[in-house]
């Protein structure tokens, strides 16, 4: 099972997890990224490359399935205006065993941060806007997988 979505609509984590409808699958692991309340941020504006972003998420799912023993994978990333507290990204996998499930989530998020053409801009309470720069720590985490 694979479900990949770039969307502006908010999503419900519980509803998304029901997509794993495989009885007796063993393990589900997931990560949800949420807009943080910091730097007097009111919202994030997320821009994406409309063609490359979907292709990059599918490529990421391919690599997760090659590297780990997975039964299913869900990757959802939002774009547009996202308020503080709203979900940005959701990655979930199902597997027969927990280690593959948990490792796959870590790998997927580290790679997503550097490989998928998405860009975030902070919209602060005073109306100012600031593009977020790529963090060296994110690059290092992605490169640490060495594959």
């Amino acid at each position: 099972m694979r479900y990949i979505s770039l969307q502006s609509d908010i999503f419900d984590i519980g509803s998304e997890l029901t997509k794993f409808n495989d009885d007796g699958l063993g393990a589900i692991s997931s990560f949800t990224g949420i807009v943080r309340a910091e730097n007097k941020v009111e919202a994030l504006m997320i821009e994406h490359h409309p063609i490359m972003s979907v292709a990059a998420l599918n490529d990421l799912a391919d690599r997760c399935e090659t590297k780990y023993d997975l039964r299913g994978i869900i990757i959802i990333h939002r774009y547009g205006i996202l308020r503080v507290g709203q979900p940005i990204v959701f990655v979930a996998v199902s597997s027969a065993h927990r280690i593959d499930a948990m490792k796959a989530i870590e790998y997927a998020m580290d790679r997503l941060k550097t490989d998928v053409p998405l860009w975030k801009k902070e919209i602060r309470q005073d109306g100012s806007e600031h593009w977020i720069e790529q963090k060296l720590s994110d690059v290092a985490a992605s490169q640490s997988w060495n594959d």
């Binding site: 990224g33 997503l112 941060k113 998405l118 860009w119 975030k120 977020i132 720069e133 790529q134």
Partner: peptide, 23 residues
Amino acid sequence: LARLDAPIEGKGELAIFPPVTGG
């Protein structure tokens, strides 16, 4: 994705953007 030394001959579109910050 393309590197700086990639040839542009025969290509229709060049996209230019900053390092990505999704997730």
